[in-house]
């Protein structure tokens, strides 16, 4: 099993060091990547790891309220929670990603949570091709501007403007789901050339109506164009240069 753990410089990395100093064993498969703050962990990095075949990614940071960078850990938590709820509907086991708070004095906790995570990943097994493909699509979504804009505005909306966090979470999830659908549409169109909403619905397994609305939105943004009615249905193709 391949397990990646992101550790922050101030709490969880020294926490991992302490696990070693206390000779508390944890699985040797664990690979630690040091960042300054858990808030540095871009979802794109997590998704990149999964699409490359890593079986589980854990982001670790300082306890809430103790982040060396005030709120970096909360941003990390918001992102990982979003990812888990996206995974639930995308065929990726959401247990492959998790977030944990480990202080610099919690060597024991570091060993415990990495052991538990390894056990969990053992239970769900290695990442399969379907999950890797889905991670690839979500990776592309989180590398693109729209999803990132809505995610990036979370803090302003919730903390500064007082928007209901649950409502905003809904907006975020909807946006990402939509972008995932559009990414899948693009992939089908790239493969086949031109397709109608019904043909896409069949291939993707989502309702034709929803696909049609997204096709219209994508057309408006000049990502795709309609090439007119062929065989009694309106067909769409990728805009040149996209």
């Amino acid at each position: 099993m391949k397990i990646l753990v992101f550790c922050c410089d101030w709490c969880s990395y020294p926490g991992a060091d302490l696990a070693g100093i206390l000779r508390l064993e944890y699985p040797s498969e664990v690979r630690i990547i040091k960042v300054m703050c858990s808030g540095r962990v871009d979802l794109m990095l997590v998704l990149d790891a999964l699409r490359q075949g890593i079986d589980g990614v854990m982001v670790t940071g300082c306890h809430p309220g103790e982040c060396h960078y005030v709120h970096g850990n909360m941003e990390a938590e918001r992102r990982i929670e979003l990812l888990r709820s996206i995974f639930e509907r995308s065929g990726i086991n959401p247990r492959r990603v998790r977030i944990e708070w480990i202080s610099a004095s919690e060597g024991e906790k570091f060993a415990e949570v990495t052991r538990a995570f390894k056990q969990e990943i053992d239970e769900i097994g290695p990442i399969n091709q379907g999950e890797i493909d889905a991670a690839e699509i979500i990776h592309d979504v989180f590398s693109s501007e729209r999803a990132r804009l809505v995610l990036g505005a979370s803090r302003r909306a919730i903390e500064l403007e007082g928007v209901d966090p649950l409502w905003y979470k809904g907006v975020l999830e909807r946006t990402v789901r939509e972008e995932v659908l559009r990414e899948r549409i693009l992939r089908e169109l790239r493969k086949t050339g031109a397709l109608s909403a019904h043909e896409l619905a069949e291939r993707i397994g989502e309702p034709a109506k929803e696909i049609f609305w997204n096709l219209i939105a994508m057309k408006r943004r000049q990502i795709i164009l309609d090439i007119g009615i062929v065989d009694d249905s309106l067909k769409f193709a990728i805009q040149e240069g996209v």
């Binding site: 300054m36 703050c37 808030g39 794109m44 941003e75 990132r148 804009l149 995610l151």
Partner: peptide
């Protein structure tokens, strides 16, 4: 901290060394 690098919608920010 690199929070901005992770949040930048255009991926236009990079934190040196990370």
């Amino acid at each position: 901290c690199g929070i901005c690098a992770a949040e930048c919608p255009a991926s236009a920010i990079q934190l040196e060394d990370f």
